[in-house]
Design a protein around this nucleic acid. Sequence first.
DNA 1: GGAACGATTGCACACGCTTGCAAAGCGGGT
DNA 2: ACCCGCTTTGCAAGCGTGTGCAATCGTTCC
Lengths: 335, 335
Amino acid sequence: MSRKIYVSAKEVAERAGVSRSAVSRTFTPGASVSAETRRRVTEAAHELGYHVNHLARGLMRNESGIVCLIVSEMDTPYRASLVRALTRRLQSQSKVAMLINTDRSDSSVDQALKQAISYRADASIILSGMPDRSITDLCLRSGQRLVLINRDEDRDGALMINLDDQEAARRALSAFLEAGCRSFAFANSEVMTPSLMAREVGFQAAAREKGLEVTVERYGSTTYQSGVVLAERMLEREHRPDAIFCANDLIACGVMDVARHRYKLAVPEDLCVIGFDNIEQAAWSSYQLTTFAQPVEEIAVRAVEWLSDHRPVEIHSHRLGTQLIWRGSVREAKS
Amino acid sequence: MSRKIYVSAKEVAERAGVSRSAVSRTFTPGASVSAETRRRVTEAAHELGYHVNHLARGLMRNESGIVCLIVSEMDTPYRASLVRALTRRLQSQSKVAMLINTDRSDSSVDQALKQAISYRADASIILSGMPDRSITDLCLRSGQRLVLINRDEDRDGALMINLDDQEAARRALSAFLEAGCRSFAFANSEVMTPSLMAREVGFQAAAREKGLEVTVERYGSTTYQSGVVLAERMLEREHRPDAIFCANDLIACGVMDVARHRYKLAVPEDLCVIGFDNIEQAAWSSYQLTTFAQPVEEIAVRAVEWLSDHRPVEIHSHRLGTQLIWRGSVREAKS
DNA sequence: GGAACGATTGCACACGCTTGCAAAGCGGGT
DNA sequence: ACCCGCTTTGCAAGCGTGTGCAATCGTTCC
């Protein structure tokens, strides 16, 4: 099966009886072509099924139109929705997403960034892991733009988009307090992403300000199964918490299921739960989880608008707010 | 911010004191280079941060290494897991996934395929929608490989991967029968994908063979919310079904939640439910949904192995089996 | 009619890479 | 010493574009 079958501008030019440059210009917005030439070219192109070769164009322009999304566990609800929002946004700016899957290891993120470089991506958006500084430097030096989402470490020249996790944690605590809760716990994974840690630390700090203690438990990664284990550990105890703030909606779902099915606790009467992310399942009637909504759409907008912003960049960091979505996993305030 | 900052093979060659071809060959597996030259080149390359330009390489070789994944609603659990499996698999073959989001419309799929052509993708994998024949023909003529997953329509030269939906539907019916169910329903969306329809038709046909009737209800798309509406319609009736086969796990979750919370039915005692896909949530203890597992990994393997298979292709179609995962949403057979 | 001017167009080079081809190097066998 | 065969290397052509530059064309104005 031969392969050099794509039709080229040259063939279109011959068919249309014009020079090759005319073809090129026809497909270059803002170039100078007469209406007649353009017509003949587009016609010939259509007949032959010609499409500009973006690889060659990228070679010339030093601008491939490719943006790499570097992400691990992308089948997780929150990640998936973010990836979707980003690809949509990119497409609307006539860029295209190259999806690179990593495991949690930073070395695989390094590997992914090298891929990005090889394909001369205009930018890379990192949703998981933290690459080595030498690699990010290389990216930046190569003229690539870099966006870090929810990774706190600094990289000069990269755009960092973060949430106000601490603020959210404080709100969570006051929601619990208004509901009359007395004993607080935080259910975390062992992943220790800065943003996850900020939730934990923020929750603890807010409690301490009120003279309250928080039991922190950590286990595994940010999954439903971890939530199951965490809940078992927490609810086994003598003094069970009556309020659990979870690093994550998935964990929260696991916690709720164990609380209800295994310990026969009623949510929110016996136990209040707050999650984070507002994944789709949080709204399902089995959970009705009160949680913080990540501004996924806004994250995508900010990330992508920064990519196409050709001015020398000033703002390198956004801290976006989250919205507390009230559902049924926290008691109504006693009025 | 200037842009032509990527280091090229020429610079590496100068630094290493060799010809530019030597550099090229160093990075071409199987090319003839002496150990010494290779060493000097890799060293220089490393120092300068050189990475082969895949755009230019693709231009020469007529092989970009890019594979387009064309998909709608990719934040849906099943889709997300498939996308993940595919990207992983592709990466392991040192290909890379370009992710294109479409809405349900076929025209947006056409658009996506044109993108694929523009980037000279080696192949396109279509997970949603059905593109116009003229476009797929163009793709094939251009030497692009095409994989259609779960879309039944024929396209000569494309690989089609389907599930044995009908067979699964039959198994669902006999599972219900063994559980002693009497009144059967099928909860479908209005999407009418061939594969969804096969489940419906297969279920109905199997029932008819036993002289039984199936109530079919269709609504919306294949989401949790549709499941909610479908369940309301079905359970409102005089004669409620005591067995519902759902086109989809998401629908099944919606159905179960409505059955339990709104109609106070016990699953599986009052109502048996079977889903399809085996999404992660099906295993959550709030659902414990008995469902058919799609062989996601195998789909990915088959799709990708076909892409790198350079022999003239013979087999153009796979029909893969599904596995019934027994959980708690169907009664045990009375022994 | 001629000049001046702007809009089009074609030529040719550049982008960074691969690869066929021929020249060069190297070693061994006679 | 010579020749043969194999490996290594450099040269240069080509992949499909974009674009600066100069040439051409058509129009308007005096």
